[in-house]
């Protein structure tokens, strides 16, 4: 464990708790893409299948359990409890356009052709594009609530910090996982224009609005 990965994990935890808190407090999931949340749920479930079989540490097990629980709770709030506030007209990104190619790629490019490894690879690839419906929804509505932009900033920062963690681990532990690194770079690149808008607008107290 290194500081970059720890701060990354905490940023990730902050992001998902922030979103859950926003929906619960405002009793509304306006501006939130349910499709992205479904895909994140899929990411955690397919990645943490070894939750009960492969004990790494208390921290690892706890965080995995929290991520799965919070993802399920968020999906429940969006599609059940506060369904009336779900903006399905703007959450129109076709998930199958992401899940099918990612599923195919996971079969073709992986470290080991076993069920667990292919599911892990699928999870890594899916996570890199899971935010697209959310970014697409913001581009359609032209704006995002400030709390939602903080959520996105924390979520984007987590994988950016993981890239630093991988550089650190390569030099100090000789560890690297090309699949995770490439997918992590793609994932972080997708946030770049959002990061720019966040730093230039939200940091200056303005609302995040995309140039119409």
């Amino acid at each position: 464990m290194n500081i970059f990965r720890l701060v990354g994990d905490l940023s990730h935890l902050l992001a998902i708790l922030l979103l859950l808190w926003k929906i619960w407090k405002t009793r509304s999931c306006a501006g939130v893409s349910g499709k992205s949340q479904i895909m994140f749920g899929l990411v955690y479930i397919t990645r943490y299948l070894d939750l009960f079989t492969n004990f790494i540490s208390i921290y690892n097990t706890t965080m995995k359990a929290i991520f799965i629980a919070v993802a399920i709770a968020t999906i429940y709030l969006i599609y059940f409890k506060f369904k009336a506030t779900y903006d399905s007209n703007h959450d129109t990104f076709r998930m199958e356009f992401l899940i099918v190619p990612v599923g195919g790629l996971a079969f073709l490019v992986n470290h080991d052709f076993t069920a667990l490894e292919i599911l892990w690879t699928f999870s890594i690839y899916l996570e890199s594009v899971a935010i697209l419906p959310q970014l697409f929804m913001i581009s359609k509505t032209g704006e995002a609530e400030t709390i939602t932009s903080h959520y996105l900033f924390a979520l984007g920062s987590y994988r950016a910090l993981y890239i630093v963690n991988w550089v650190y681990r390569y030099y100090f532990e000789g560890f690297f996982d090309l699949i995770a690194i490439v997918a992590g770079c793609v994932q972080t690149i997708l946030y770049c224009d959002f990061f720019y808008l966040y730093v230039t607008k939200v940091m200056h107290g303005k609302k995040l609005s995309l140039p119409a």
Partner: peptide, 10 residues
């Protein structure tokens, strides 16, 4: 070559 270490990352 990739060193397949324990999947210890989240």
């Amino acid at each position: 070559s990739k060193i397949q270490m324990e999947k210890d990352e989240l």
